[in-house]
Design a protein around this nucleic acid. Structure first.
Lengths: 207, 207
DNA sequence: CTTAGCTTGTGAATGAATTCACAAGCCCTG
DNA sequence: CAGGGCTTGTGAATTCATTCACAAGCTAAG
């Protein structure tokens, strides 16, 4: 398949959210123009994004809301459940474990790992906290699809290396560190400090 | 000033982090090549990014680590403290209130708001939780620079409208909603669901 | 002082993403 | 069934971002 830009995938994700909103409101069809207005983009952008994956609309009419939603779920890989492990049972790890958006989208948390002996053996949202030193063994047993990295940033890179080595192919990183991973491992970093600095830059460099 | 791309600002933020790392290691100068290697980009990219703001290096030698760090802090608006309010004292709001990265970068949390009567009046990390219904009055009194939105997504848009109306010019949004704001209000959205879907897309559409 | 060895800063070239613009196609009305 | 009113899907044009490539300039050594 032709390479798809990151920005396109992010927008597809947004469109899906809007479609679900429209579905709840009982709308059965929607035009690229309506989708675009809701998301602050342009109708041409919407149509171009979709065109990479096929042809989903009817000329003169627009898109069927449920059909397009189904197609987007398929494209985004949301038609199945995904097994997730969380590394780090600290503040962020705990907040993530409770995050309801996970289950809603078909993500199942199958394990949480930590190094703190006081936490190991306890449960977080019904999931047992495991010993970090057994990471490799447990990963090969649990076969998670996605690992969420919520460790202190000093150890983030070494944990990522261990995960990559154990066969994990997708990592969502919350440590404020720039990580290097092999080409076959996809890493997405959520870095609040960076977003905040984007804001202070905008506030500082206003015309 | 010429318009600066978002991606450029994000990279400046990353460079600053590396410079601080180099400073800790006692390095006094650094080349664009070294900065690039650390961050997985190219030396030309580093130099181009910096060139938008001036000329910070010495040919043949590279950049002075502390001087470039200072220049970047200035550019990113980190040379002062910023007043932050957090809207929503739920899981995310509480996790953010405790986030140490805030204070480190000069962000001071001046208030937390919530609608829950049981939470109002209590404190979170030494900051009083205030009644959401007094938002406008308290904002005009406290004059925050940045608002962090950590509300349920159903109310995110209406809270944003109230904030914009009360004069807040920068918002960091954690609600998984696409928000519309006036042009003079900068909104950055941190949306975990979107990042996760970027991962499932990558896992699904691997060649 | 001169040469060798680096590294910056920046126009020019390339590549990527977005927007334009319009033919093709669907629905509804009469 | 023909015409008007919409809306899609998509090449072409444009805008934006990254990479190339090299003159200019600094340092150190002889």
């Amino acid at each position: 398949m032709k390479h798809i830009a990151d920005s396109t995938v992010r927008r597809l994700s947004i469109y899906l959210r809007f479609l679900e909103e429209f579905e709840d409101r009982g709308l059965s069809t929607v035009s690229s123009e309506a989708l675009a207005r809701r998301g602050g983009t342009t109708s041409a952008q919407v149509r171009k994004d979709l065109s990479f994956f096929g042809s989903f609309g009817k000329r003169g009419l627009g898109y069927s809301v449920p059909e397009l939603a189904t197609a987007l779920r398929e494209i985004l890989g949301l038609g199945r459940t995904w097994r997730v492990i969380i590394i780090g049972a600290g503040k962020i790890g705990a907040a993530l474990a409770q995050y309801r958006g996970f289950a809603q989208r078909g993500f199942t948390i199958v394990a949480v790992f930590d190094t703190n002996p006081e936490k190991i053996g306890q449960t977080l949202e019904g999931v047992e906290i495991r010993d970090m030193s057994c990471l490799e063994r447990d990963v090969s047993e649990l076969r998670p699809d996605i690992a969420v990295l919520a460790t202190p940033n000093e150890v983030a890179q070494s944990v990522l290396d261990r995960l990559a080595c154990a066969g994990v192919k997708a990592v969502l990183n919350f440590a404020p560190a720039q990580l290097n991973a092999p080409a076959d491992v996809t890493v997405k970093t959520v870095n609040m400090a960076m977003e905040l600095e984007g804001l202070t830059f905008a506030l500082t460099n206003r015309d």
